[in-house]
Design a protein around this nucleic acid. Structure first.
Lengths: 209, 209
DNA sequence: GTTGCACCCATACTTAGGTGTGATGCGATA
DNA sequence: TATCGCATCACACCTAAGTATGGGTGCAAC
């Protein structure tokens, strides 16, 4: 039996039809993937490890809420797992809406098993990529949070390409003080060069967008 | 009559049905947009100003080639105008394929006029954004092309955060020489600070990807 | 063969960046 | 109240960066 560490990606299957759930579950297990099944979105949201690696396979027709609406709700909840949608009674506007909202794929039932496996594989890859980027920039964000307000201010101006002298004038400080804050920013951010710091500053901007 | 300068975005309509073409043309004109119509992809590809701002409204069923295939062909031809697809006999897999390939929207005929207008507006906005980014990084690319091989080499190491001393050692040069190349790179690239240069170097990397 | 360009370097000098010592004041918290 | 983090600055010192002067080579185009 494969070990399920917190690093093992989980495929979350949300479908109100139990036989569909079981079928999908065994399909994904047959290719070595780990799956969890849920009959409702509520049940899914109560589950843990939603912040771990994985993806979601979501039926469009669910009790109480449309899978499409739920897809948008996930975003506002900060759950950024890639979503694969499936439906038995879909139409083109539905699929277009789903894809616009960032779905990895939109499969009509009955689908070919290989199509589902491909979609899930793609979704997991996309998640892995996002996570890799995320861990990098979260580390930067954490370090940036340890800066004092002044240090942040100086860092912003330094990475904007200003000279210590100009920064001092702009903030009404002496040049020495700027150098001190600048040095502290470099140290706290773990930047080994100005180029490093510039890239971190840009990563912070991307983060906030 | 509105003036059509090279800055006016053009909506390229590709549809083999003439009445459809005319209808779309007048719809778009009614909201102040400039449109061109084509009965075949061939006719479209012979047109000029395909590198100007605009977007493409493409019927899926075309003589000789599927609109979906043509969408992919456009990419390989380097034509990066956003594409809005429409069809009278579409299905979900078609729409999903189109959206995966980057289509702005996929409309089933008959569509609501407002939906087409919205799609085209979105497409034009997307094009405007891409163009703005593009002109920036193309300018950087041009300037980078004026650097001598050594200057490029030094720029790469500088923007990697290395000290002149380290660069000199790595390239087997004296530190003065490195400074000269470095200064030349800054001048030719139009960088007013090291931070500037670092961002340009990163833009170059993005470009190549 | 001269002209132009890329490339290289030494010396000398100026400005910018970085650090350490030592000191002051402020506000929050233990 | 004492201590800690933050912010501030002066003085001194060192390294790094940038520029100018002046000179050298090799290569390719005209």
């Amino acid at each position: 039996m494969p070990q399920v560490s917190s690093e093992t990606p989980v495929v979350h299957i949300v479908d109100d039809d139990e036989s569909q759930r079981l079928g999908l579950d065994s399909l994904l297990r047959s290719v070595g993937l780990t799956a969890r099944t849920y009959g409702t979105t509520h049940e899914f949201l109560k589950a843990d490890r939603l912040d771990g690696p994985g993806c979601i396979v979501l039926d469009v027709r669910l009790p109480g809420i449309s899978g499409l609406d739920f897809q948008e709700e996930l975003a506002s909840l900060g759950i950024r797992l890639p979503v694969v949608l499936m439906t038995g009674h879909g139409d083109i506007p539905m699929s277009v809406r789903a894809m616009k909202a960032g779905a990895v794929d939109f499969l009509s039932k009955p689908f070919r098993e290989q199509d589902m496996i491909d979609a899930v594989t793609l979704a997991l890859n996309r998640d892995r990529l996002r996570r890799a980027r995320e861990t990098q920039s979260v580390a930067v964000l954490d370090r940036h949070a340890t800066l004092s307000p002044r240090e942040r201010e100086v860092m912003a101006l330094v990475t904007a390409g200003k000279l210590n002298k100009q920064i001092a004038a702009e903030l009404g400080l002496s040049e020495v003080t700027v150098k001190i804050h600048r040095g502290a920013a470099m140290r706290k951010m773990g930047a080994r060069s100005l180029a490093d710091l510039v890239r971190m500053a840009d990563a912070l901007k991307d983060q906030s967008r």
